[in-house]
Design a binder for these strands. Structure first.
Length: 591
DNA sequence: GTGAAGGGCCAC
DNA sequence: AAACGTGGCCCTTCAC
């Protein structure tokens, strides 16, 4: 693939090029950098292409004019990037948006991400990869050579091959987008792609913002957990010693307490009847009778804390900012949920000892807001169940209202036990729980659990019907959708009962979990547009929760903006049930 | 040595 | 040894 391009190294040429490109409807947009992390490396090239004319801008040539983020020589480029039109077509646009935001000081407008488009079209099948070369091959039947991708982009003089590679990646984007749009339309993915594209910039900024972690507090907490682990480990070793087959003449009876095999063998050696697995739910019932089991569970909890939530997380603090800049995958699950890694800020334990380490910096506040029972409200909306909707509309305690119906008592006569059963039913039904599992969970007999489920669905007949239709339709459609139109293709083998069951539970759960993700993403965009000129910064999201940091003086205003954005986003999708958002202003990430 | 797989467990 | 959905991280075990 041969691409003509202009290599730009001076302000006059840049201004002319930006003027030339400004009339295009779509511009391919790409950058080349010396590192993957914008806090660690240089932004070397910015490439723009309308498909015919391609500009490769060498930012090293502009360093002589001063800092890139503020210099006036780059103003034409900033203006072009900031504009809603032309659209900027990029593959994994979050990357390009982060680098240009951080190094050029500009928020890119009109982003269109061919990576996210490809993932949406893939609909969770995993049957093809979504790298640019893969996507270009699949949609355009053209082969892209990516060997220059990892070349030295910090070299004073770039090679011809590097410049051509850079130009070509940008030049292919408009054509790729045009081709993908046909498929997006045919698959009914227009709305959800718009939702995703509008969410890229908020996510890019969130990653740049990072979340402040008080390292001192974290270390103090960690020291406590490490001491607990050491103490529990020592006690457990001596309790197990008698059950360990003599290892050597030197008589060492120490075993690896992190090895299920060795621990299970030692416990068996003590005459303890061991279940097939050593997972907590299996061992818990044995803990009362056997102190060794109780000690093992104590050791495991401390080991988990010291391992997954230990020193490792401190290593993610970026020295330049003193904050944690985790990676958020915008379509982390086929349902549309985000995933998070390096580190995963969506799995920090609830306990205050951990959460209080994530806090606002001096002079700032956190605003923490989450949707109240959003998945159950979505289920009410999608199923249109009159009784379920009425329970939400009354504003009364949903779980108590459910208990009253299931147990056939007056709402104010519901016992705490009954409410607890109803709560677990309400949450379980979202996951497609079965009677057996519900029985294990609650301690009811299988018979009683079946009856409880039967009464539950009798109480909410339209919900029952909606869930049944999802189960039935997936057999032929092999697909499910959220309210935004997000698609999940579902594989199943009709001859295999387990596969059919799994597909049916997924087909019932995906529209609910995925619509929740749709709503959150819409909220992120609305929030982003309203906090742009304020002190507020998005710092974390956890499925139905948004955390914003702002100047202390702006906290009340920020809380109102956040609640309003989340509520409006919810109301765009949910019409029959009220949306409820709980929000708090705090110094720390606690509720 | 390195990496995949599986167990176990944290979040929503 | 979960027939309750979605993730990621740490650890051991085992194959290459």
């Amino acid at each position: 693939m041969e691409v003509q391009f202009q290599f730009i190294t001076d302000p006059e040429a840049l201004e002319k090029a930006c003027e030339e490109m400004s009339d295009a409807a779509d511009l391919g947009f790409d950058v080349e950098t010396t590192e993957l992390d914008p806090y660690k490396g240089d932004l070397r090239l910015v490439q723009l292409s309308d498909g015919r004319r391609t500009k490769v801008i060498d930012l090293y040539a502009f360093r002589k004019f001063g800092g890139l983020a503020t210099q006036t020589e780059l103003a034409p480029l900033r203006k072009l990037l900031a504009a809603e039109r032309p659209k900027k077509i990029a593959h994994n646009a979050k990357f390009d948006a982060k680098w240009t935001r951080h190094h050029l000081g500009v928020e890119t407008g009109g982003l269109y991400d061919t990576y996210l488009a490809s993932v949406l079209i893939g609909a969770g099948t995993g049957e093809r990869r979504h790298g640019l070369a893969d996507v270009v091959q699949f949609f355009l039947q053209k082969t892209l050579d990516k060997t220059e991708q990892v070349s030295d982009w910090g070299a004073e003089d770039l090679t011809q091959a590097q410049a051509e590679y850079a130009a070509r990646d940008a030049a292919v984007m408009p054509e790729l987008k045009a081709k993908m749009e046909e498929r997006i339309a045919a698959d009914g993915l227009r709305d959800v792609l718009k939702l995703e594209n509008e969410c890229v910039m908020p996510v890019a900024e969130m990653e740049l913002n990072g979340f402040f972690l008080d390292a001192e507090r974290w270390r103090q907490q960690l020291a406590v957990k490490e001491a607990e682990q050491a103490a529990a480990g020592k006690e457990l070793q001596s309790m197990l010693a008698a059950g360990v087959a003599q290892a050597s003449l030197f008589g060492t009876t120490e075993i690896n307490l992190d090895s299920q095999q060795q621990v299970a063998a030692a416990l068996s050696g003590l005459g303890i009847p061991m279940p097939a697995s050593t997972s907590r739910w299996q061992l818990q019932p044995l803990a009362e009778k056997y102190p060794q089991i109780a000690k093992l569970l104590e050791y495991r909890a401390a080991a988990k804390a010291a391992g997954s939530f230990g020193e490792n997380i401190l290593e993610f603090i970026e020295p330049k900012t003193g904050r944690i800049h985790a990676d958020f995958r915008q379509i982390g699950a086929p349902t549309g949920r985000f995933s998070c890694s390096n580190p995963n800020l969506q799995q920090i334990p609830h306990e205050d000892v951990y959460r209080r380490c994530f806090r606002a910096e001096e002079g700032n506040k956190l605003v923490v807001a989450d949707y109240s029972q959003i998945e159950l409200r979505i289920l009410a909306e999608m199923s249109g169940d009159a009784a379920f909707i009425a329970a939400f509309e009354s504003g009364a305690d949903l779980h108590a209202a459910t208990a009253a119906r299931v147990f056939g008592v007056e709402p104010d006569a519901v016992t705490p036990d009954q409410r607890s059963f109803a709560k677990r039913l309400n949450f379980g039904v979202v996951y497609g729980i079965g009677a057996q599992r519900f029985a294990r969970m609650t301690g009811l007999s299988d018979r009683e659990a079946e009856n409880a489920l039967r009464r539950y669905f009798a109480s909410y007949p339209q919900m029952d019907e909606w869930l049944r239709v999802r189960s039935k339709e997936v057999i032929s459609s092999r697909a499910a959708r959220t309210m935004s139109g997000r698609l999940a293709k579902i594989e199943l083998d009709p001859a295999d009962r387990a596969s059919v069951g799994a597909a049916q539970r997924y087909a019932r759960n995906m529209p609910i979990q995925g619509t929740s993700a749709d709503i959150l993403k819409r909220a992120l965009r609305l929030l982003h547009d309203r906090i742009r000129e304020t002190s507020a910064r998005l710092v974390n999201i956890v499925h139905d929760e948004i955390v914003v940091e702002c100047a202390a003086a702006d906290a009340e205003t920020t809380r109102e903006i956040l609640v309003d954005a989340m509520t409006r986003a919810g109301e765009e999708f949910i019409k029959k049930v009220p949306i409820k958002v709980d929000a708090a202003i705090a110094d720390e990430w606690t509720k």
